[in-house]
Amino acid sequence: MTTLSTSGPLLDVRAISLRFGKSDTNLLQGVRYSVDAGETLCIVGESGCGKSVSSLAIMGLLPAGAVTIDEADVQFRGVPLDLHDTKAMRRFRGSDIAMIFQEPMSSLNPAFRIGNQIAEAVTAHNDVTEAEADARAIEMLRRVGIPAPEQRMREYPHQLSGGMRQRVMIAMALANDPALLIADEPTTALDVTIQAQILDLIRNLQRDSGMGTIMITHDLGVVAEIADKVAVMYAGIIVEAGPAERIFNDPQHPYTIGLMSSMPKMTGPSERLSTVPGTVPTIETMPKGCRFSTRCPFAQPICATPPSEQDFGQGHRVLCHFAPLNEKLERVQ
């Protein structure tokens, strides 16, 4: 429940690389990002790109034994996090770093009243009486906009709608005033009008508390709405990262461009969509070199070698041999 003022980022992921078991292809390869206090980083990508795995790794929630961590240089408030130290990670989880998931129904225990579940999160990390924890639960339910919290806290998850459940999840996550909130597709299961309410809620809570937020999503609309910074992931690699404005207005990586071209538009004429051909490679069929090369319309022989990172300033970095594409490629007449 303390906010340390430190210089430098709140969470600094300098490198995470990991593999499933003995597989020789990395599931995550050199993933690097940082979040400051009060800032929102969106990690965007399609299913299987590793966006959830990277945050589960930071939370120490990956099943031990199933994955081999090759490299994990992560600093939280300037202090290295040892992802192997399960005890220390347990202290962090739910107090300094909290997480909310996509499907609130499967994250809440159906057999306990929601008030008890929030209170449990409080007592797990603080030396408080039951009455104090209950009071905190009521306060949190009120903060996330649940009407009549005194009655509501006595209800079970099945008595709540999807939007209300997600509010309960948020109340639980924020009960210990975390410095960092990781939200994994928090609005994907919700309708658009409810999604708008939840995004507003997260934004307001963040403004009040100054916490850093990592939002994992596949929806570029959500990203445009709330992100300060964006990291685009593809097949376990961050292919492009930078300030949100640069990612949307000056995207460099062919995958980012393909993803944006694939989205049906809400304005202008409805032209045929430019797709990203093919499908995401599996861990067995992962190409050597650039991992996007099997789907990239610009792929050249050199793409069989790993591209090095190019820096476009203001933290805008791109992993592509041919960035900027409009200068390094030309049309064959």
Partner: peptide, 29 residues
């Protein structure tokens, strides 16, 4: 459209390549 001119070129290049309207090669000039 708030995109930069360079970005607009890149989107056009991408759309042309996907639609098979043009072939792309590394720039020589």
């Amino acid at each position: 459209n708030p995109r930069s001119d360079g970005a607009r070129d890149r989107f056009a290049l991408y759309a042309d390549a996907i639609a098979g309207r043009t072939r792309i090669r590394p720039q020589t000039t």
